Simulated assay, not measured.
Amino acid sequence: MSDLKTRVYDDVKTAMKAGEKERLAMLRMLTAELKQREVVESTELTDAVVQSAVEKMIKQRRDSEAQFRNGNRPELADKEAREIQMLMAYLPQQLTEAEVVALVKQAVGETGAASGKDMGKVMGWLKPKVQGRTDMGKLSGLIKAQLPA
Rank of each mutant, 00 (worst) to 15 (best):
S2E: 01
D3W: 10
L4K: 07
L4A: 01
R7I: 07
V8L: 12
V8F: 06
Y9P: 01
D11S: 12
V12Y: 05
T14A: 10
T14L: 08
M16Y: 03
K17N: 11
A18C: 03
A18H: 02
A18V: 02
E20H: 14
E20P: 02
K21T: 06
K21E: 08
K21Q: 12
K21G: 13
E22P: 00
M26T: 10
L27H: 12
R28H: 12
M29I: 05
M29H: 13
L30M: 14
T31V: 15
T31H: 07
T31K: 01
E33S: 05
E33A: 14
L34E: 05
V39S: 00
V40P: 00
E41P: 04
S42G: 00
S42W: 10
S42E: 14
T43C: 09
E44T: 15
E44M: 11
L45N: 07
L45F: 03
L45D: 04
T46P: 08
D47F: 02
A48V: 05
V49G: 11
Q51W: 03
Q51R: 12
S52I: 05
S52L: 15
A53L: 11
A53P: 00
K56S: 09
K56F: 04
M57W: 09
M57D: 05
I58W: 06
I58C: 05
K59H: 03
K59W: 08
Q60R: 13
R61Q: 07
R61E: 13
D63H: 06
S64Y: 15
E65H: 13
F68P: 10
R69Q: 15
R69W: 07
G71T: 13
G71M: 07
R73E: 08
P74A: 14
P74F: 01
E75V: 08
E75Q: 14
L76Y: 12
A77S: 06
A77Y: 11
D78R: 09
E80P: 07
R82T: 02
E83M: 00
E83S: 08
I84H: 09
Q85V: 12
M86I: 04
M86K: 01
L87C: 01
A89I: 13
L91Q: 09
P92V: 01
P92M: 04
P92S: 06
Q94R: 14
L95V: 05
T96W: 01
T96G: 07
T96Q: 09
E97Y: 10
E97T: 11
E99W: 04
V104M: 02
G109Q: 11
E110C: 01
G112W: 10
A114Q: 13
S115P: 03
G116L: 14
D118A: 10
M119Q: 03
K121H: 10
K121G: 06
K121L: 10
M123D: 03
M123L: 05
L126F: 09
K127Y: 02
P128S: 03
V130F: 02
Q131W: 08
R133Q: 15
T134E: 09
D135E: 02
D135A: 02
M136N: 03
M136V: 08
M136R: 08
K138D: 15
K138T: 00
L139H: 10
S140H: 07
L142H: 00
I143E: 07
K144M: 10
K144Y: 00
K144C: 02
Q146G: 01
P148L: 05
P148F: 13
A149T: 12
